[in-house]
Simulated assay, not measured.
Amino acid sequence: MRRIVIFLGVILFPVSALSQSAAVHTVSVLDLQVALRAALRAVEVCSEAGHQAAASVVDRFGVEQVTLRNNMAGAHAAEAARRKAWTAASFNMPTSEIDETETGGDVSGTTGIPREVPIGGGLPIVSQSGELLGGIGVAGGGSGETEAKCARAGLDAIADQLK
């Protein structure tokens, strides 16, 4: 009797079927208004510090949701902000922590990725439960450290909505 139960178990529930992933995945995305609020606050904080910057927010896949640029920001700022946001979302880490040259590091050897920008100013956007929602990038703030502070201000502006 036991052999029949095992045999039926193998036929009805093959191991390969149990180990396969789901056919459909559900992910969370930021509402456009929330993304806009984060980018706007980042640009405002940089402006208050005397910098003409741009800020960009991308979703978890690196697709741009919104990019804002101070009227006097340089021509490069919007694209650099997008690329920093993309990098932060793609690696799920602050862009200032990316060291492509660190032997054996998490991102060593990634210098060939065309859109990657491994300098300060990009932060991942993560829900309070730890789910990656996207990235925010700031450029034109004078330094990676200042740009990261502006990006952090953008995240702080939406923190209560990242449940």
Rank of each mutant, 00 (worst) to 15 (best):
96 S>I: 08
83 R>D: 10
156 D>M: 12
123 L>N: 01
159 A>V: 13
39 A>W: 04
99 D>K: 13
139 A>F: 05
91 F>G: 00
84 K>F: 07
139 A>G: 13
74 G>W: 07
92 N>Y: 02
91 F>C: 05
159 A>E: 15
58 V>G: 06
12 L>F: 15
73 A>C: 05
12 L>G: 09
148 A>K: 10
21 S>M: 12
50 G>F: 06
136 I>Y: 01
58 V>Y: 07
147 E>S: 11
26 T>C: 02
12 L>V: 11
117 V>E: 02
4 I>P: 00
89 A>E: 08
84 K>I: 09
32 L>S: 07
7 F>V: 11
143 S>T: 13
104 G>N: 01
116 E>Q: 12
127 S>W: 07
148 A>G: 12
129 S>M: 07
5 V>T: 11
33 Q>F: 09
132 L>G: 00
101 T>I: 10
126 V>I: 15
107 V>P: 00
145 E>K: 13
46 C>L: 06
104 G>F: 03
109 G>A: 04
72 M>L: 14
41 R>S: 11
154 G>Y: 07
76 H>G: 01
85 A>Y: 09
95 T>H: 07
14 P>H: 08
163 K>S: 13
116 E>N: 10
47 S>V: 01
81 A>L: 10
87 T>N: 04
45 V>L: 14
150 C>A: 15
119 I>K: 00
123 L>H: 01
55 A>Q: 05
39 A>C: 06
87 T>I: 08
93 M>P: 00
140 G>A: 03
108 S>C: 03
92 N>A: 14
88 A>L: 12
10 V>R: 13
68 L>W: 03
122 G>Q: 07
39 A>H: 04
161 Q>P: 01
139 A>V: 04
116 E>A: 13
54 A>I: 02
25 H>D: 11
98 I>M: 01
100 E>Q: 13
120 G>T: 03
150 C>L: 03
66 V>N: 01
64 E>R: 14
151 A>M: 04
29 V>Y: 03
46 C>R: 06
83 R>S: 08
30 L>D: 03
2 R>G: 15
